[in-house]
Amino acid sequence: MSYYVYITTNPARKVLYIGITNDLTSRMAQHYTNRGSAQTFAGKYFCYNLLYFEEHQDSKAAIAREKELKGWTRAKKDVLIATENPD
C-alpha cells in the first residue's frame, strides 16, 4: 500500500496544510467538498489546491515525514514546493 504526504493551500496561497493519506485522489475531493467548513483547519482556510506530494510505502515513514514537514519554516516549505512544482 502507498501512503502520501501532501501539501495543499488556499486560492490566495496564504495558508499551507500538510496531511497524510492512502488515497490522494479521494482526499483532495474531500478537501474540496469541505471547503469553508469551520470544523477542520483545511476546510476553514479553504485548503484544497494540491501543491506537493510524495509517496511512501511505509505508514510509519510517511507519518514521520509529515511531522518533519510540519516542523519546517514556511520558507523551507516554499523551497520544497518550488523544486517540484515551480508554478
Rank of each mutant, 00 (worst) to 15 (best):
R27G: 03
A42W: 12
F46R: 09
Y17H: 14
A61F: 02
F53K: 03
H56Y: 15
S37Q: 11
F46G: 01
R27A: 05
Y32T: 13
P11A: 08
G36Q: 10
A61S: 14
Y45M: 06
K44C: 08
I20S: 04
H31A: 05
L51E: 15
L50C: 05
Y45S: 02
T40R: 12
Y45P: 00
N34M: 09
R13K: 15
A12R: 13
Q57R: 13
K60E: 12
Y52K: 02
K44Y: 07
S37H: 11
D58W: 07
K14T: 15
Q57H: 12
K60C: 04
K60H: 13
F41E: 02
L50K: 07
L50V: 06
L24C: 09
K60N: 14
F41M: 06
A61W: 00
F41I: 08
E55Y: 00
Y52I: 04
D58L: 09
H31R: 03
R27H: 08
Y52M: 03
R35L: 02
R35V: 03
A61I: 01
F41S: 06
G43N: 09
K14F: 01
S59N: 10
Q39A: 15
F53I: 00
A29D: 10
N49Q: 11
N34S: 13
R35G: 03
R35M: 10
Q57Y: 09
F53V: 00
A38C: 08
E54D: 12
H56K: 12
L51N: 04
Q39L: 13
E55D: 08
L24F: 06
N22R: 11
P11S: 01
I18Y: 05
T40E: 03
A62K: 08
H56D: 05
S59D: 07
V15E: 14
R13A: 11
G43R: 07
Q30C: 01
A62L: 08
Y52D: 01
S37N: 15
V15N: 07
Q39D: 11
S37Y: 07
A38Y: 11
